[in-house]
């Protein structure tokens, strides 16, 4: 997993709450190899009934080309646990998501893929989306070590992140290699727990 440290990039707004993972990547793309699944990003919601790209859906607009930051409304990534929702966004260049809240499983899946979910207040998220809509192509800067997010208005917000998740992202370390280092504790726990719940 590549480390996440600092990122300055074009940010694209999506002004919809409860964007579920079926909208991020429809189910019919899930069994496909990663290269093809990538083409499924926002597949259905970015098109109209005639299957044409909607010009008013920001990720369709050329001004936002190369965006690596996505600013969403509340409960982004709710619904299904499909990790594709994160990996397909990543494969399309996104490295950080900003929203007032995220679906819990999506939120955890981000950390497993070296992608940073940033929670900001409801009002600040709305302001950022409005600014990005008014100045398409504007950039934002994320500094993970400092835990800061700079908006296109130059205002810098501090954001919270658990130190465990922060360390793993900064180092590019995933959970498996970290946990395997604790094999002795796991074995000791299993021995005691196995005596208590002996019927399992």
């Amino acid at each position: 997993m590549e480390p996440f440290t600092k990122l300055t990039a074009v940010a694209v707004p999506i002004d919809m709450s409860n964007v579920d993972t079926d909208q991020i990547i429809p189910a019919r793309f899930l069994a496909l190899p990663r290269e093809q699944a990538k083409l499924g990003l926002f597949h259905d919601i970015r098109r109209d009934a005639a299957k044409q790209l909607k010009p008013d859906f920001p990720p369709n607009r050329p001004e936002y080309a190369g965006a690596a930051i996505l600013v969403a409304a509340r409960n982004f990534g709710c619904g299904s646990s499909r990790e594709h929702a994160v990996s397909v966004l990543k494969d399309n260049g996104f490295r950080a998501f900003v929203a007032p809240s995220f679906g819990d499983i999506f939120h955890n899946n981000c950390y497993q893929n070296g992608v940073l979910p940033i929670v900001v207040g409801e009002e600040r998220a709305a302001t950022l989306r409005a600014l990005l809509a008014a100045q398409p192509g504007a950039t934002m800067t994320v500094d993970l070590a400092a835990q800061t997010l700079a908006g296109p208005d130059g205002i810098v917000d501090k954001f919270p992140i658990d130190s465990f998740r922060k360390d793993c992202l900064l180092r590019g370390q995933d959970d498996i290699s970290f946990t395997l280092g604790h094999a002795a504790e796991i074995a000791a726990f299993e021995a005691a727990h196995g005596r208590e719940l002996s019927w399992l």
Binding site: S81, R82, E83, N109, Q112, D175, I176, T179, I186
Partner: peptide, 22 residues
């Protein structure tokens, strides 16, 4: 609770999972 594919692999490997207390 439901988890993502990387976490499924983690549980396969360690029979354990990292969680922040909800």
């Amino acid at each position: 609770f439901g988890i993502g594919a990387s976490e499924v692999a983690h549980v396969m490997a360690t029979q354990a999972i990292w969680q922040k207390k909800p």
